[in-house]
Design a protein around this nucleic acid. Structure first.
Lengths: 153, 153
DNA sequence: TATTGTTATACTCTATAACTATA
DNA sequence: TATAGTTATAGAGTATAACAATA
């Protein structure tokens, strides 16, 4: 079987059929990876590492979150979250509180400064890549609508 | 201004207009992040770290690639590539060769084993998320076509 | 006994700066 | 002088296992 590969590394079988969903997924992968450098740069603007940026982004400004839940959101072991949160806490972006009903659990809350940083961060990241912004208005709406359906919105 | 945030952390202005491209980008972000755990698991199947998986994926089975080019593809400093390639080379997946015309340059080539691993890896990663696979055939084609246009295919 | 989070350990990734060998 | 890659360094992320406090 002849295999070629595009820059995202997704397989395309020359002369064979690839499901539209698989091809779309490859293109999404490529699009997303093309923005990795931009995300790293945004993290640096806020003096955060990428994983710290992910932590701030995943904390809820209105509802304190258990350490374990953040570990799940970051797809990393709970033991890592201790250190990540230590560094954010020492910078005054996050606070640890003990949960009332189960004192084993520690809840993470954004400080005022942390919440401000999060808002600015989320705003900066929400700018779409040039390749999407350059689509026609009709294509942009079509893309949005299909993705809404995929994600059940 | 009222701000709410979805799980991907993208800003949505309640009662205000968000450009379709920006909303689509937020949904793509969310979709991609939802697959991070799966990608980490695939890397573990191959006994690779995520960055090592990225390196294998980005090496060209047919054309040896300079270290500097891999550094660019991985969005990391050239000094890191030395260690990453060291570990792949010690596992017999990659070979370093000196370039003929400029002996400062080192070219990276996949070994036979490395090329096999890459093929299997790319195949495993190309499976689309369930949320895309569950779309209607028409939606899948529509998504693919818009993304092709975005990326100039 | 089981669970949450921490600590200890070992390894990997990361950027910066200094170094080497080429050019 | 300039460039490609390496090495040295220091810090951060990572998983595993052992541990403390709490349930």
């Amino acid at each position: 079987m002849l295999l070629r590969s595009n820059i995202a590394g997704m397989a395309t079988r020359s002369g064979t059929r690839v499901s539209p969903a698989a091809e779309a997924w490859g293109l999404i992968h490529e699009l997303f990876m093309s923005q990795k450098g931009r995300f790293v740069a945004i993290a640096q603007e806020f003096d955060l590492t990428p994983i710290q940026m992910g932590a701030v982004r995943n904390l809820d400004p209105e509802r304190p979150v258990p350490m374990s839940e953040l570990a799940g959101a970051l797809h990393c072991d709970a033991s890592n979250v201790t250190g990540i949160v230590d560094r954010l806490e020492s910078r005054g972006l996050v606070e640890r509180r003990s949960a009332d009903r189960d004192r084993r659990v520690k809840l993470l809350a954004l400080t005022g400064e942390g919440a401000s940083a999060r808002t600015a961060l989320v705003e900066r990241m929400s700018t779409p890549p040039e390749s999407l912004a350059a689509l026609t208005a009709a294509d942009q709406r079509s893309l949005r609508d299909v993705l809404r359906r995929a994600l059940g919105r």
